[in-house]
Structures are given as C-alpha cells and as structure tokens.
Amino acid sequence: RRPRGRTTLMIAAAAVLGVVAGTCTGYLIQAERPPTELPPLSQPVVPRAKGEAEPLPASQDRQIRLDGDLREFLIDRPKKARDVEDPPGRDGWMGLSAYAGRYNGPSDTFANLLADGFRRSATTSWRFGENGGVYINLTQFRQVDTLGASLWADNGVYWANREKDTRSWPIPGTGEHAGTVYVHDTPDRKPGYLPLYTAEAHAWRGDVYVEIFVHDSGPIPKSKIMDLAKRQVGKL
C-alpha cells in the first residue's frame, strides 16, 4: 500500500468539511419549511363476505382425485402392446425399496425418498416393435415439509441434461420448468448387443412426479416421447 502524503490528507479534510457544511445547510432549510401531514396509519376495513365458499366438486379438485387409486391415472397401454420381460413393480405398484433400487446408490436414494415424503408409486410398461420399450412411473409425495414432486422432477431433469448429444423441449401445458422431454441421439453401444437409443420425460403436477422412459434399437423421434408425455400429464 502506498503511504498517504500531506496533500492527500488536506484534500480529505476539505471533503469532510464540505460534507458537514452541506448537511448543516440542509437541516436549516428543512427546519424553516412547514410540516407536511402524513397519511393515517390505519387503513379502511374491508367487510367480510357473508356465507361460506362452496368446496370444489371432486371432478375439479385434483387433490381429492389423486387420493384415490393412483394407477387409474396412468395412460392406457396400446391395444397391440406386449408385456416387458421383467416388468417393474407388482400389480401396477412399485414399493419404496424397488423404486430406490432403480437409482445408483439405492441406499442413499432410499433415505432421501423417506426424507422427502415418498408416499407411493404407480407404474406401467409395455413393448413396441421388435426391440422398443416404454416405462412410466407416477410417484406421489406427502409434501408436508418439502415439495417432493418438484424436487425429484428437478433431479430427473438435472441428470437428463448431463447426457451428451441431448435435445429437449418443454411439455405444453405444464408451465415454466414443470415438464420437459429429452431425446438422446447417441446410443449406448456394447459388444454383442444392439445399439440402445433412449428418450425420457420428467414433469410434476401437484404432489405427483411423472417420469417416462423409452428405449429402442433405432433413433426415437421427438413425436413419440412428446405424445406420451402430453397424454400422461394431461390425464393428471
């Protein structure tokens, strides 16, 4: 640091005296002005509405609807769809352990799901064409201490965005950052196996996290994953 010289101190002292003189002048001018009336602190009282608001019918109250059988909100399988060889879950339900087992580090995932209020997960799957497959999960959270559905949707979006050669589009009707589809253009290749192309979608509605996965031996068009996502989110 360079030492301060005498000139610098003189300039600093003059600046301080100027500020003090200006402040005193301002106080004197203000003191000679007549006082300005202030608005009252109290505000007018708004009268309460009479009667009670009618509750929404069950057909319009999404929370009541989703408290029923969550499997009924899965989109229907195509008529010509075939069962996958090892379907996830049992009878359309996937337990907490099975759901956590789909992730890398299932033990940590199990604990995180518990902390975020995992309630239940409904699932469906089917095969199409020669090598294609579709997997859909609706995972519901209690959302007492945290917004689990949006939190886990953001987690799915984070990992989908990390894949190379990935294209993405928002799902119409889901609002900002509430639903996105992804197409991964580079397949997973292993010796002795057909190339594996994948696409996925992540969205949330209320307390339900929607995730859709599609795989095939050939490129997956945007229209396929987008159609599945729009129909599934729309059914919620």
Rank of each mutant, 00 (worst) to 15 (best):
110 F>C: 00
120 R>T: 05
210 V>L: 04
170 P>K: 15
57 P>K: 12
214 V>S: 02
34 P>K: 15
59 S>E: 07
69 D>S: 15
166 T>A: 05
108 D>S: 15
160 A>R: 13
1 R>L: 11
218 G>R: 15
222 K>R: 15
30 Q>I: 05
90 R>M: 04
214 V>N: 08
213 F>N: 07
14 A>C: 09
193 Y>K: 15
69 D>P: 07
164 K>V: 05
160 A>P: 04
119 R>I: 07
114 L>Q: 13
101 G>W: 00
182 Y>T: 03
91 D>V: 01
129 G>V: 08
62 R>G: 09
194 L>D: 07
168 S>L: 03
231 R>A: 06
207 D>V: 12
93 W>R: 13
85 E>D: 11
106 P>K: 11
133 G>E: 03
128 F>K: 12
151 L>M: 08
194 L>G: 08
113 L>C: 01
207 D>N: 15
149 A>H: 06
224 K>Q: 10
38 L>S: 12
110 F>L: 07
75 I>Q: 05
75 I>A: 06
121 S>K: 12
234 G>M: 04
89 G>R: 07
10 M>N: 15
102 R>C: 11
140 Q>K: 04
64 I>C: 05
196 L>R: 15
122 A>G: 07
233 V>C: 08
30 Q>W: 13
15 A>N: 04
210 V>W: 01
69 D>W: 12
214 V>Y: 03
36 T>F: 03
129 G>H: 01
236 L>E: 02
99 Y>K: 09
219 P>N: 03
128 F>R: 15
142 R>G: 14
19 V>H: 11
211 E>Q: 14
21 A>Q: 11
69 D>L: 07
126 W>G: 01
226 M>W: 06
57 P>C: 05
58 A>D: 13
158 Y>P: 06
21 A>P: 11
29 I>V: 00
137 N>D: 08
209 Y>S: 07
56 L>K: 12
229 A>C: 05
217 S>W: 04
154 D>I: 06
55 P>L: 00
129 G>Y: 00
182 Y>F: 06
31 A>V: 08
189 R>D: 08
159 W>P: 04
120 R>W: 01
132 G>W: 02
174 T>K: 00
234 G>P: 03
91 D>E: 09
45 V>E: 07
184 H>G: 05
100 A>Q: 02
8 T>H: 10
75 I>R: 12
85 E>M: 11
134 V>E: 00
144 V>D: 07
10 M>E: 14
145 D>N: 15
157 V>W: 00
13 A>W: 05
5 G>V: 13
12 A>V: 09
140 Q>W: 03
158 Y>F: 09
159 W>F: 08
